[in-house]
Structure formats: structure tokens, C-alpha cells
């Protein structure tokens, strides 16, 4: 473990890294007092190793307690703090300040295409409704062999490995221009999670899910703009997964290795 050699404490202070002032311009909205969102700017002292989430915390804790945003684990696992930072969907907890151009203000706003509730918080219900509709759970009616376990080969596991990484942060779906137009499109995240089960050799619900995604608002609304693949904080090849589902719809069944 080479990472354990540092002394406890803030490593950036000990290494003598200078703090600098960063300007954040945040799109604020309070449904009780405003009819339209406004942009408000804040100056915060940050270290290069800090993240955008740390800047938001600093504002909320030291400058304006009314700033509202979601975050849970703060370490890129839970997917609560997807937001639009400098025009790109990212997780605030995985975006380092030093990776952004700090000579310019950093623009932070809520993700697009979902109803804005307050500041950086949107109503995620339409997003989760699409997710529920593709039946994101294992459908298996047969008893496992010997009553023990459903055996899967390494190759069979590998075909859907990428899409198991999804944390449902909605960065992909809310970066999709087709989703922005009317919100009827299932969206990349729902298709990615359908892919995870469609291509699972233990699952028997592929035909049902392919029927659902053969809908007018299903995979055929994808225009392969690759916004979703660029937005995904987990590096899932979203557009590729959608293309594989399209192929599965065309041939009627997913192509899974037999062993």
C-alpha cells in the first residue's frame, strides 16, 4: 500500500499548494419566491485538489445556507449529485477544480430535461418511471440446476459487464437532446439497465424487454449523438449498449455466448 505513507491531515496544505479564489456562477431557483431561475455568483477559496462539491459545501456552510443540492456518499458511488458543470453533465463529487479552467467562472446548474424543483435539485420521478418500466430485475422461472446456483461463464458475464456499472445518476439521460424535447423517450439510462438484464444468460425476460424497447419511444429514438457516452461518470459505453439492444430487437433475441 504505497498510498498510506502520508501523514494524516490535509495533504494539499502540507505540500504547500496555494489556495486560489474560484468564482462559481450557480443557477438558483426558489419555487416559492421566483418565477424564473437566476444566475448568482459566489467567490470561494479552494485548493486545486478540491472538487466542485467541496466548493458547493463551502458556499452552503459559509455563505448562503439556502443553496440546495443533492449529495449522499460524496465519492462517486451513489449518483446523487449529477449536475451541469460548465455545460457538461458531471458528478460534482468527481470533478476536480484543477481540471476546470479556473481563470473563468465555473457555471453550475441543474441537469436538463427533468422538472426543476429548487436550485440544483430536479424531480427524478420521470427518470425512475422509465427505469421501472424496463423491469430492472432478474426474471427467472426455472429452478437452478441442483437447486444451488445459476452458473454463468466468464464470457457470458462479460457481455453485460459494462452496463452493470450504472449508478442511476441521470447524467446520460439528461444530456440526451431527444430526451430534452418531450421527455417521452425512455432515455439512455433505462436502456442501459435493460441491456444489463437482456444480455444476462440467466434471465428469461429478454423478449418482454425487447418488446418494451421496440416502442415508438424506445431505442429507435436514439440518434447516436454520443452525448450519453461522454456524460457517463462511470465510463459506460452507453451508445454502444443502445446499439446492441437495437441489434437484439432486429434479430429478436440478444446475442449471448452459449458458454
Amino acid at each position: 500500500m504505497t498510498t498510506m505513507t502520508e501523514e494524516p491531515g490535509n495533504p494539499s496544505i502540507e505540500a504547500g499548494i496555494a489556495a486560489f479564489t474560484v468564482t462559481l456562477i450557480i443557477r438558483r431557483f426558489d419555487p416559492e419566491t421566483m418565477s424564473e431561475p437566476i444566475w448568482q455568483d459566489f467567490d470561494v477559496e479552494m485548493y486545486p485538489t478540491d472538487r466542485v462539491l467541496d466548493a458547493l459545501h463551502k458556499i452552503k456552510w459559509e455563505q448562503d445556507g439556502s443553496l440546495s443540492f443533492r449529495r449522499s456518499c460524496a465519492h462517486g458511488i451513489c449518483g446523487s449529485d449529477a449536475m451541469r458543470i460548465n455545460g457538461r453533465n458531471r458528478l460534482a463529487c468527481k470533478t476536480l477544480i484543477k481540471d476546470l479552467d479556473i481563470s473563468q467562472p465555473i457555471y453550475v446548474e441543474a441537469i436538463k430535461g427533468l422538472p426543476l424543483e429548487k436550485d440544483l435539485i430536479v424531480d427524478m420521478e420521470p427518470f425512475f418511471a422509465s427505469y421501472r418500466e424496463i423491469q430492472p430485475f432478474l426474471i427467472a422461472s426455472k429452478e437452478p440446476k441442483d437447486g444451488k446456483e445459476r452458473i454463468q461463464s466468464v464470457a457470458q458475464r462479460a457481455v453485460f459487464d459494462d452496463t452493470t456499472k450504472c449508478i442511476l445518476c441521470a447524467a446520460c439521460t439528461s444530456s440526451c437532446p431527444v430526451f430534452w424535447t418531450d421527455g417521452q423517450y425512455f432515455g439512455p439510462a433505462a436502456i442501459v439497465n435493460a441491456h444489463r438484464f437482456i444480455f444476462d444468460s440467466r434471465d428469461e425476460g429478454a423478449a418482454v424487454r425487447l418488446d418494451i424497447l421496440n416502442d415508438k419511444e424506445g431505442v429507435w429514438r436514439c440518434r447516436t449523438t454520443f452525448n450519453c457516452s461522454e456524460a457517463c461518470p462511470r465510463g459506460i459505453e452507453v451508445t454502444k449498449a443502445i446499439a446492441e439492444v437495437k441489434n437484439a430487437v432486429l434479430s429478436g433475441r440478444p446475442s449471448i455466448p452459449t458458454a
Binding site: 423491469q135 418488446d211 415508438k216
Partner: peptide, 26 residues
């Protein structure tokens, strides 16, 4: 034991022109 539900398990009302988008895409 899990209850076995016969297909079709997907109960959303069938839409008109199902498969049109697929043919258009092709």
C-alpha cells in the same frame, strides 16, 4: 416458491403501428 405468471407480463396497452419505428430505422 415464486409464483409463475404466464406471459404476457407486460401489461401496457399496445400502441398502434408497433414495429413502424423499427422498419423506418432499417
Amino acid at each position: 416458491a415464486t409464483t409463475t405468471v404466464e406471459p404476457p407480463r407486460y401489461s401496457r396497452a399496445p400502441r398502434k403501428a408497433r414495429g413502424l419505428e423499427k422498419r423506418a430505422w432499417l
